[in-house]
Design a protein around this nucleic acid. Structure first.
Ligand SMILES: [Mn+2]
Ligand SMILES: [Mn+2]
Ligand SMILES: [Zn+2]
Ligand SMILES: [Zn+2]
Lengths: 139, 139
DNA sequence: GCGGCAAATTAGAATCATTCCTATTTTGAT
DNA sequence: ATCAAAATAGGAATGATTCTAATTTGCCGC
């Protein structure tokens, strides 16, 4: 029998992820992002979750996204000076921006490749984060 | 004898580079960048060249920088949502952002490495540009 | 359950790098 | 010199993001 008082309408989201309390707003942001491969902007997230949570504000969406990024639950992706986009894929990967369609695709690294191996870094360098961005077209 | 009527006060900059006419303002922007390893922002360029050209405007600096980037004379570098920075190094290279000092360092690739070789790209992908960005600290 | 408190949310104002607008100046070509 | 095109300057506008202040919510001990 269900000890949980909530109905399981969808995939259950835990109360807390990586130490971040999952409020209703954060759940909606997180749930939407997990089902998207398109790397939506904050405003796209906002417009979408308003359907389920009409009172949500854009400021809250920014707050939620920042909290989720800070707790390494999602990643923030920037292309030049365009609005930031958000990515649920936590594997190490790059981003290919298709100029023809405007779409963004995750790019995996070939197995066994260590990014820092190919870089000529000064000794004693501690790398916290690497970002790889590609621009081009899918001919 | 000098057929050129101008005095050679400094390293001469040609009238035209990559098809871009080198106006006085563009020369100043270009000259300053060529002597800098710090990847200055538009505003830093502005403040510096005002010394030699007090009437220059920030709008013109942005115009010059855009023209120089478009003609592949310099490169624009973005870190997250920070103000754009500009780089005179046209070799293929990445950028390491030292969080401790806030400084930015060029990072070469080890010889014989082809960036696209390590990426798992879909076939028929034409890559126009690759950008590699690192964040961390020089311990 | 109830008061108190910290965290989260909200709406709207503020920020600020960048872009846009437009009048003026400069340039290069006839 | 004349003209058209390109470049510049200064100021206004833009827009993603952040900040502020005022609620609201969730949670703890009573
Ligand atoms: Mn860039
Ligand atoms: Mn980034
Ligand atoms: Zn991604
Ligand atoms: Zn550089």
């Amino acid at each position: 029998m269900m000890t949980n008082g909530l109905q399981n309408r969808q995939t259950a989201i835990p109360e807390e992820i990586n130490g971040l309390r999952m409020t209703r707003q954060r759940q909606e942001v997180y749930r939407f992002l997990m089902g998207e491969r398109t790397h939506p902007t904050a405003n796209e997230v906002f417009m979408k979750i308003k359907e389920a949570l009409p009172s949500v504000s854009l400021a809250t969406v920014y707050n939620c996204l920042e909290a989720l990024v800070q707790h390494k639950i999602i990643r923030q992706v920037n292309f030049d000076r365009e609005p930031s986009r958000y990515c649920p894929n936590l594997d190490e990967h790059g981003h290919f921006h298709d100029e023809t369609t405007g779409t963004i695709h995750d790019v995996k690294f070939k197995p066994g490749i260590n990014l820092t191996d190919i870089l000529d870094l000064p000794p004693n360098t501690v790398i916290k984060d690497i970002e790889i961005t590609l621009r081009g077209q899918l001919a």
